[in-house]
Design a protein around this nucleic acid. Structure first.
Length: 944
RNA sequence: GCUGCUGUAGCUCAGUGGUAGAGCGCCUCCUUGGUAAGGAUGAGGUCAUGGGUUCAAAUCCCAUCAGCAGCUCCA
């Protein structure tokens, strides 16, 4: 009884592929190349979940398909293995994170191999490998050695940075400081989440609502010395580069929005002694608009310079450097208190403070509006962010929602300066200053600009400010420099040394570790518990590690570590040449394999990983280490896999069910009925519900509507599906096939275990199409023959070849599978199954269900791996049917069908249609007004 | 609030102006000493709703409704 038994077949073929090195990649491609990449996983302790194999199966099918078409395919896998969970585990158990990490990698590897993916396992890497992070550190040194030439829009070696004469004159220290201020990797003070109770610095994701995730302790924001990467210099190129990428439009837009380019003007508002305003203006007219505003002016950035006449007050961020100098003695106490309070709020609290009630405090001083010489008050408020633009704004309450809300709150004047279109519903309210209008219109209350439209006024105001040296055009980006250091143990150490003076204090001079001395390994620690000080974990290391002497000078190692993003920024390059000890990648190999032809991963990496990688890649490109300006040519996001559909309804405290249509959310977030009775959510068995109209209702009471939806898989909900158990019950080929059959790759879709059973049935059917499972031995069914296909079989076969080929290219795997199911249904009904057709079919199915196909391929007497066979070609001639059915419509409605040869002409078709009995009856006594005849498609008669 | 995506059979989805389809599930019947088995039939659709364009609309246009996802003080 030789039944289909994946548990026996699958491990056997996996062992064969490994021994045979079936999927070993050539060092250099022969002929056409295809680089197919999965976003590599973080090897968590939970192992794979069913979301992982979705993308992995898709890329595996593409890779196997491309190989069979004669292409050289690079299809590697690795592990993004630095990360917080391993460190948390180390803190708890004292076990080195490397041990736990390796255990998890081993488990992931086992699971991935169990699924039969055709990775070239000889290229596997982990970001935690010393031979890997050596080059991560090397790239950091390259960033450290690079400055961005704005003129050329290009990163260049720091040795080529032009040094201004006054800096050279000030000596070597000044030159070095100038260089440091221009490097792509630089140090700066930045706010971190310091938790005094835990005695450690926390990552943003470890902080929830201002409390630590672990222990619920308060978290403070304190400034700490940090490494930053000057990604902002590449903003324009990161934006431009998106244009030619074959990426989902949504991801491109997310990146564009994240970069957030806006154009407007910078304007200086005089804040000095009133008496000297005219003198200042005259000076400015002579010198022009300086690069720094100086002490006498407050510089703002605005995208609406046309509304300058409506600026009735100014706001600076609490962190703005001029807060102190702008604050008067009387206001001092209030301002200090306000700023301190703001400093305890995280960015999140400041930006999503519930109802968005504006807070602020008056500084006591005034600025002079450059367009009309009028003094306006300067406020300090945290709705203005220090990090965007200049950290200060001119407030135009009539035409900006936030300024409007603030002006209402603090009773500040509102002057409309843009007249909305005359048909605007709120026009009178806007002109009265009672309503905010943010769109474009005609200038009013704006002196000589009155009557002009917004874009004209923008241009003329900017030009006139420029002439007076009080403003200029400016471009701004939302994108911020990348905070690149973490105060953690389990990350790449920075290859940087800080020079110490005779007393052991830092001199401020730094040097990179000599590339020959890389990698800088992590120190051995006795334990991984936080040391309780707001500084990095590596400061716990022994002096042996911490201090270095070079040429008689003493240095202390940098103790920050790199963030998890670092290793994932360039791993795709290392796969090309994973064992190279001379370079991060051999240039010839890099040229031959890059760019990546298909990159598949989750949409959660839409912005950060993909933007950071592109940034590093562009720096490497500028410095001549890679040959393509962009790394990822085509990107596809696989959709999320949700848990099985669940039904739920609401019940009152007495157990009485309530229809979901009668349940609302009250102010406290409770679910209540119309009468205010709080109800409980209750899950309902699938058998107790029935479909009615749009939704589902209780079988027992159709008036009660219930919710039906699939939820995200989570441990808490208990709906996580484990690939190990699916493979055990159904086999890897069934899991692979089901993941692809669920729906389009990009769609979010619910898991249904019955569906896995469905595709398993299909594979069983494929098995029985070829194997006689009723025989005692493993023999073929007797209907397998050496005859040729008949016409219908040939057509079905070639239709299938075409559909599967086209769908594999287009990543529409679900429809390809549906077609193969049809093929199987057709041929199992057939009592003559030509062997040639079976072999061709197995080749088509082999990228999807490789184990089963290898097995059947051999049972049909073939040698070698089916993975090495060439992909079938379809024959157009075989697709044509000898007779086709043509619909005949009367007035656009289908009334009859006629059978004709596919190549009949228009006239013949009309003749045949008009001779049809049904048609004759239907048009009897009527006049044919018009005949629409499309050969091969239809006949439509318009009659009266 | 803004943006994007999606509404076709019980479920998951094909179908880009011309006959409403597939797979799974379901019903009924048959076969079966290897049974979460196989075979054969069949039912099931206001193509979310309303309007428009057209000889003809699931498909194009407008509006509405519903669901999902993401973003949100960026001056």
């Amino acid at each position: 009884m030789p039944r289909y038994n994946p548990a026996e077949i699958e491990p056997r073929w996996q062992a064969f592929w490994e021994k045979d090195r079936t999927f070993a990649t050539p060092e250099l491609p022969k002929g056409r190349k295809r680089y197919v990449l999965d976003m590599f996983p973080y090897p968590s302790g939970d192992g794979l979940h069913v979301g992982h194999p979705e993308g992995y199966t898709a890329t595996d099918i593409v890779s196997r398909f491309a190989r069979m078409r004669g292409e050289s395919v690079l299809h590697p896998m690795g592990f993004d293995a630095f990360g917080l969970p391993a460190e948390e585990h180390a803190i708890k158990t004292g076990e080195h994170p490397r041990i736990q990490t390796q255990r998890n990698i081993d488990n992931f590897t086992r699971q991935l191999k169990m699924l039969g993916f055709s990775y070239d396992w000889e290229r596997v890497l982990a970001t935690t490998d010393e031979g890997y992070f050596q080059w991560t550190q090397w790239i950091f040194l390259e960033l450290y050695d690079t400055w961005f030439d704005v003129e050329q829009q290009k990163g260049r070696p720091i040795s080529e940075l032009p040094i201004p004469a006054e800096i050279s004159a000030a000596g070597d220290r000044a030159v070095e400081a100038y260089r440091d201020a221009n490097r792509l990797a630089y140090e700066s003070d930045a706010l971190v989440n310091w938790c005094p109770n835990l005695g450690t610095v926390l990552a943003n994701e470890e902080v929830i609502d201002g409390k630590s995730e672990r222990g619920d302790h308060p978290v403070q924001r304190i400034a700490l010395r940090q490494w930053m990467l000057r990604i902002t210099m590449y903003a324009e190129r990161l934006l431009d580069g998106l244009e030619n990428l074959d990426w989902p439009a949504g991801i491109k837009k997310l990146q564009q929005d994240w970069i957030g380019r806006s154009t407007g003007a910078e304007v200086d508002f005089y804040v000095g002694d009133d008496a000297k305003f005219q003198q200042w203006q005259a000076d400015r007219a002579k010198t022009g608009f300086p690069s720094e505003a100086g002490d006498l002016a407050l510089r703002v950035y605005t995208t609406r310079p046309d509304t300058l006449f409506g600026a009735t007050y100014m706001v600076v961020a609490p962190e703005h450097p001029m807060v102190k100098s702008l604050t008067t003695t009387e206001q001092s106490a209030a301002v200090v208190a306000y700023c301190e309070k703001a400093s305890f709020k995280s960015d999140r609290e400041r930006t999503d403070g519930g109802e968005k009630v504006k807070t602020g405090v008056f500084s006591g001083s005034h600025a002079i509006n450059p367009v009309n010489g009028k003094p306006i008050p300067i406020w300090i408020a945290d709705y203005v962010l220090a990090g965007y633009g200049t950290g200060a704004i001119m407030a135009v309450p009539a035409h900006d929602e936030r300024d409007f809300a603030f002006a209402k709150q603090f009773d500040l004047p509102i002057i409309p300066v843009v007249d909305p279109p005359s048909d605007h519903e709120q026009r009178n309210a806007i002109l009265a200053g009672d309503f905010c209008f943010v769109a474009e219109g005609q200038a009013i209350n704006s002196g000589k600009f009155d009557g002009k439209n917004t874009s004209e006024v923008k241009a003329s105001v900017t030009a006139s400010l420029d002439q007076q040296g009080q403003g200029g055009e400016a471009v701004n980006y939302k994108l911020r420099d990348w905070l690149f250091s973490r105060q953690r143990f389990w990350g790449e150490p920075f290859p940087i040394l800080h020079e110490l003076d005779a007393d052991g204090n830092p001199t401020g001079i730094k040097r990179g570790v000599d590339p020959a001395d890389l990698p800088v390994l992590l120190p051995d620690l006795k334990d991984y518990k936080p040391h309780g000080r707001p500084e990095p974990m590596l400061a716990k290391a022994d002096d042996d590690w911490l201090y270095v002497s070079i040429d008689g000078k003493r240095y202390r190692r940098e103790t920050n570590t790199m963030p998890q993003w670092a290793g994932s920024c360039w791993y795709y390059l290392r796969y090309i040449d994973p064992k190279n000890q001379q370079a991060l990648v051999d240039p010839d190999k890099e040229k031959a394999w890059m760019p990546i032809d298909l990159y598949v991963g989750g949409a959660e990496h839409a912005v950060l990983h993909l933007l950071y990688s592109r940034f590093w890649h562009k720096v490497l490109y500028d410095r001549g280490h890679v040959s393509t300006p962009e790394p990822f040519g085509k990107l596809v996001n696989q959709g999320m896999i949700l848990g099985d559909v669940e039904y739920s309804g609401y019940v009152q405290p007495d157990g009485k069910p309530v229809s979901t249509s009668d349940v609302r959310k009250d102010a406290d977030g409770n679910r209540v009925t119309k009468d205010g009775v709080i109800v409980q959510s209750k899950s309902i068995d699938e058998e107790d519900v029935v479909k009615k109209g749009e939704g589902f209702v209780l079988k027992s009471d159709p008036a009660i509507k219930v919710d039906s939806r699939a939820h995200k898989m989570s441990k808490a909900r208990g709906n996580v599906v484990n690939p190990d158990s699916v493979v055990r019950e159904y086999g890897a080929d069934s899991l692979r096939l089901y993941e692809m059959f669920m729906g389009p790759l990009e769609a979010t879709k619910p898991w249904a275990m019955t569906g896995v059973g469905g595709v398993r049935n299909f594979l069983d059917r494929v098995w029985r199409m070829i194997v006689d499972q009723d025989a005692d031995d493993l023999v073929l069914v007797d209907v397998i023959s050496d005859d040729a296909c008949d016409e219908d079989q040939l057509r079905v076969l070639h239709q299938t070849i075409r559909k599967v080929s086209e769908d594999c290219e287009a990543l529409s795997f679900n429809t390809a599978i549906a077609k193969m199911m049809e093929f199987t249904n057709f041929f199992t009904r057939s009592d003559k199954r030509p062997k040639e057709a079976m072999l061709t079919f197995l080749k088509l199915l082999s990228p999807f269900a490789p184990h089963l196909c290898e097995e059947l391929w051999h049972l049909l007497g073939q040698e070698g791996s089916i993975a090495k066979e060439s992909w079938p070609q379809w024959d157009e001639a075989a697709l044509v049917e000898s007779s086709i059915e043509i619909p005949v419509q009367i007035n656009g409605k289908l009334k009859a069908k006629i059978n004709v040869s596919p190549d009949v002409t228009k006239d013949q078709l009309a003749e045949i249609a008009l001779a049809d009995e049904k048609v004759i009856a239907l048009i009897d006594g009527k006049t044919i007004v018009k005949q629409i005849i499309v050969p091969g498609r239809l006949v439509n008669l318009v009659v009266k």
